[in-house]
Write a protein that binds this DNA or RNA. Structure first.
Lengths: 250, 250
DNA sequence: GTTCGCGCTTGATCTGGGTCAAGGATACCC
DNA sequence: GGGTATCCTTGACCCAGATCAAGCGCGAAC
């Protein structure tokens, strides 16, 4: 558990250039509002495996994922852990109006975050309806995603759980790349088998077995342990048990 | 599935008198803002078992639970169902900016709701930061509760799940009654064994068995099937696997 | 009263996924 | 090259909770 590499970025890039600008909290902001945000903004980078904050710790910023993936995790005293959110680029981290983090936030891959100092951000939220409104919208989306995931955790079989996770990653990945929706989807799994298990309420052995089974049945192709090809997204969605939409994202 | 008894209430009571006024969406509203809400407000009552809206149906209002309990439920094509939220008095129903309901909303007990016509409510939200801010706060609370529940669904044993549910109901019930925190908690379960199972990702048989086990072990007392006494909340929380806080509410 | 129906309990048995344990495949470092 | 650490796979066995099935308790309708 090393903690270097977490210094403020020097080349304070401007919001306008930000790749996730139009999907993040500031999506609706006017030029002058962006300018104000600029004042309290800074970038931080984390390497894979680094912890951004521990549950219960003071958190003096909020922010958005710019690139990479972070996960929110809850742990019981006896060590059982459950991932409760997967934060992809443009997702928001932190809760205005609360000082302590409610979950462990961990960089699952190399991670770049755009942070805002919490106090001034909270003040801005009261004065800038655009921010509060956008944040409400994003929070409602996350709530839907969390509820979708409750169905996965409560009622789906191991195979369906894996298929659900793969389809979420595949789809989010596809929209990020703005790739044409046609043709096989290809991506690298950003999660270890253990992280997948933590997200799905399974053990890593079961994840491994079901991945092998989906591969054997031709639902996915695997090259190495992480490189995945989905020849037929419809088939995968069927396996996930929700023929239609495949779910939102946390 | 009968649908009567769902007419607009005649005695349009004023918000000031509303028992949940200070905890609901309008908690922060000034007198003039309340007055404006008054214009688009109406009450609806539902009897136990009635469906408020079906998933996918048009929903032309948003609102708050005034009394009784409603549940949000998701169903898979093959009939597996998962309750994804339990709405208690003051909780908000509906999503501004979306027309179709995302879940089945069902009155679990007799239910009174304070509804606002959606279109004007959405307009007010843009003009009245107090409403958007309060709604954001409530949505963040619900998101926390949903994530808390993901841990329950993903990692807890049947016994822990039951204990978790009972402690949530007990605590929410206690705060509603403003009862002193000391002494045994007493309440009537507002859910059938089947509804409990749907919330916990279990079968009703398992729920029944674990209720019997908790009774046998003196963690709870049962009088009839629904009347519950918690002699020692600390003990119950221990059984739930979270010694400290027992969780938030959806 | 009797009968019906619904919500619940309890027992017997089955099974999906957990647990324990033994390797295999890469990648990195010396 | 060999050593070793990390991540993953696969097998053998077990158990918590699902499934199948029978019956109880109690209120409502007659």
């Amino acid at each position: 558990m090393k903690m270097p590499n977490d210094q403020l970025s020097q080349h304070t890039q401007h919001c306008d250039d930000c790749p996730i600008r139009h999907r993040a909290v500031c999506a609706r902001c006017e030029a002058d509002e962006l300018e104000a945000l600029e004042e309290v903004k800074y970038y931080r980078t984390f390497e894979a495996g680094q912890t951004v904050v521990w549950s219960g710790d003071q958190m003096d910023f909020v922010g958005s994922v710019v690139s990479g993936i972070a996960s929110l995790t809850q742990t019981m005293e006896d060590g059982r852990t459950q991932m409760v959110g997967l934060l992809l680029p443009s997702d928001f981290v932190g809760r205005p109006g609360r000082d302590a983090a409610a979950y462990d936030v961990v960089a699952t891959t190399e991670l770049v975050m755009c942070c805002f100092r919490k106090k001034p951000f909270e003040r801005m939220m009261l004065e800038t309806p655009h921010i509060a409104q956008r944040l409400l919208e994003m929070t409602l989306d996350e709530l839907d995603a969390a509820r979708e995931w409750m169905l996965v955790l409560g009622r789906k079989t191991a195979r369906e759980k894996i298929a659900s996770l793969l389809s979420i990653i595949a789809r989010r990945d596809a929209t990020l790349k703005l790739a044409g929706t046609k043709g096989p989807l290809v991506f690298d799994l950003p999660l270890t088998r253990e992280a997948m298990a933590d997200y799905l309420g399974l053990t890593l052995e079961t994840v491994s077995r079901q991945m092998s089974a989906l591969k054997r049945d031709g639902v996915i192709h695997l090259e190495g342990k992480r490189h995945v090809t989905i020849p037929d997204l419809g088939r995968l969605l069927e396996e996930a048990g929700d023929d239609n939409d495949g779910g939102l994202m946390a």
